[in-house]
Amino acid sequence: MVAAVFVLALGVLVALPLAPSIRTWKRRIDSRPLRIHERYDHELHRASEERSGSARRAGLRVHGDYRVPEGSSVGALCVDGSVTWDGQAVVEGWLDARGPVTVGRHARLEGSCASDRRLFVGSGSTFERLVGAPVEFGARVDEGATPPSDATRYGKRRFEGLAGRPFISGTGDRTLIDGDLVLDPGEVLDGSLVVRGALTLRSGATVNGSVTCYGDLTVGESARILGAAFSRQSVWLAAESFVAGPCVADRAIRLGQSATVGMENARSTVSAPRIESHAYAAVFGIIHATESGQVA
């Protein structure tokens, strides 16, 4: 008798969680397929989707050029011509212009600001995502930034420079390095590098390929990476340095004075949680700070 009661009680206990299950099963609560599109729009908006919706969603639509008074703010702005914002601009949603955009000092650009042409952001500004060809920062410049003219003309030295380094293997056009690596001034390497430590390119050093490193990536003055640059820590681009492809870091990126990412005919992406940009730095393409972007 006791055993029967016990078994019965146990059966009830086991069955109890199944009651809502059966209800959910039969009533088909929340049974649709997961809606996979537009799920990450807040962080992944694509160009055509944004632009196609511009006219419909713009808070302000301007045909022609537009000059915005200092200190004013907009939620969403779509302009067919150029935009000039004298200073202390505030964009709370997005700005989309087909002509050049000039934003003065101490602007606060939340969301996305895009131009089909040059986008200039003055010093002391904060930003989240900027798109332009190019995006330029800091002190006002009249000439558009240009990548080094000799960007594709470098000598070929296929990993000889790595002799004596903590070398793992060189397969195909890629070399694995276990530990930190420093490329001496003027040193040129042909091929991609995977460095399981920190990587430093001293002034004038060049990698004819892409690099990825687990530690900090430091690109010295006038050093060049003719491919993409990835770091699991931070990337420091010194003055006059150049990265041809995307530049991505897990923590932070600092663009030194006149550092350049991307080229006019090969646009690129700069992305990190925190980005700090100095005067005359330029990015051809997109610069995206997921946590904070600042112009020094």
């Binding site: 809606r35 996979i36 962080e43 055509s48 949680p273």
Partner: peptide, 25 residues
């Protein structure tokens, strides 16, 4: 069936947009 894309007819730009809500990692 969720949408496989947009049916907008406005011209696509060369540039992209994004992010109205900032998120931490």
């Amino acid at each position: 069936l969720p949408s496989l894309g947009r049916n907008d007819s406005a011209p696509a730009p060369a540039a992209g947009h994004a992010v109205s809500k900032r998120r931490s990692n």
